[in-house]
């Protein structure tokens, strides 16, 4: 379980999808980085990732790690967003039979997991079908 500080630190990405764009080559990093893996530049400008895209690949997790035991089975996928950025996340509100490579999805704010009954609740993005 992330400690509260560790969770808090990522809030700009998990709540607001904040990213950085390399001013050297234009590559977008999510989460932001200190050095561009494409051109080596260390200059970035703030941006946000696109909030919709298409499923590149997917799976349905039946054997989850501890914090996700109550949620299984759940679908996960790698999604290529409309700006080319790829991210990993759960695909919800989608029957497993409707999962498909190329399916359009968008980001939605959801509960991700929680630190037991008494600890911090962890929020963030999941994918839902674009209707």
């Amino acid at each position: 379980m992330p400690t509260p500080s560790r969770y808090w630190r990522e809030i700009p990405q998990r709540y607001r999808y904040e990213a950085s764009r390399c001013t050297g080559c234009g590559k977008i990093f999510f989460p932001p980085r200190l050095v561009c893996s494409a051109c080596g530049s260390r200059e970035f400008e703030p941006t946000k990732i696109a909030e919709a895209g298409k499923v590149m690949t997917y799976t349905v997790i039946h054997t989850p790690p501890q914090p996700f035991v109550d949620q299984a089975p759940y679908a996960m996928g790698i999604v290529e967003l409309d700006d080319g950025v790829r991210i990993t996340g759960q695909i919800v509100d989608c029957d497993f039979s409707e999962l498909a490579v190329g399916k359009r999805v968008r980001l939605e704010f959801r509960r991700i997991s929680q630190d037991g009954k008494a600890g911090v609740i962890f929020y963030g993005y999941k994918f839902v079908p674009e209707i």
């Binding site: 992330p2 990522e10 998990r14 989460p31 690949t57 997917y58 799976t59 997790i61 054997t63 989850p64 790690p65 914090p67 996700f68 949620q71 759940y74 996960m76 996928g77 790698i78 991210i87 990993t88 996340g89 759960q90 991700i112 997991s113 962890f122 963030g124 999941k126």
Partner: peptide, 15 residues
């Protein structure tokens, strides 16, 4: 950015 969302190793290789 992977495990936070509930991915597992079988899950990654399934992808």
């Amino acid at each position: 950015y992977e495990c936070y969302h509930g991915i597992t190793f079988p899950g990654l290789y399934a992808l």
